[in-house]
Amino acid sequence: MRVWLAPLVLIASLCLLAAWLPTMTPFFSWVEPGSDNLIYKRDSFLTLLQSHIWLVLVSAAIGTLVAVSAGIFVTRPFGREFLPLVSQIASIGQTVPPVAVLALAVPLMGFGEKPTLFALVLYGLLPILRNTLAGLNGINPAVLESAKGMGMSSVQVLLKVELPLAGRVILAGIRTSVTINIATAAIGSTIGARTLGDPVIAGLVNGNTAYVLQGAILIGLLALATDSLFEAVERTWARAFSA
């Protein structure tokens, strides 16, 4: 259970900090002396945190669903024709910088949460797709051969053997995707999504370092908390399969 300690501490401090930042005026008056606007007030930090997490969560869910189904489709006999193209898309797509995807979503969909979500889903599914393919293709062919030879149907082979075996690699893909998306969602502030990037952008525009710092601390903490959460899940998973 020790693996869960770090994420719990980080999550707790993230929530506490989001709640208590507004009371920490003395610290910020030291950072930004002589200013009256020490605390970002357009939205509460908790609201921003919530909507940031929501954006990442929804995009991760959609991305995982789409990427894993696509990965399964192109590794079945009826979809295997599409495998070379799809894996090329997954690797070339990751070359495109996330901020460019975000920017290119605006001419298509305008400003706001929608283009942000669209960009997050689109970009986020690439690492998951790549890892799904790597996971499914990386299974020892002898294992699949014997699963079939035992008399498992192809659905049983997929659910009982392939997905559990590829699971760790897929999870690592989701971790990469979520890490990128937390960062990209923060930049989503510039196209009108409400996220923890708001205070940073507002601070940069108005030359208010206190705002920038508030946003930056919370974004950093969110990223660390999420990462350690994934670390804990991965370790628990690894332990479950190798007593």
Partner: peptide, 22 residues
């Protein structure tokens, strides 16, 4: 085919044991 295979034991050189199961 599945019913057929269930009634035929199958063992191979590289064992093909499922690594995620005991």
């Amino acid at each position: 085919p599945e019913a057929l295979r269930l009634n035929m034991g199958y063992a191979i050189q590289s064992t093909g044991l499922f690594p995620h199961w005991t």
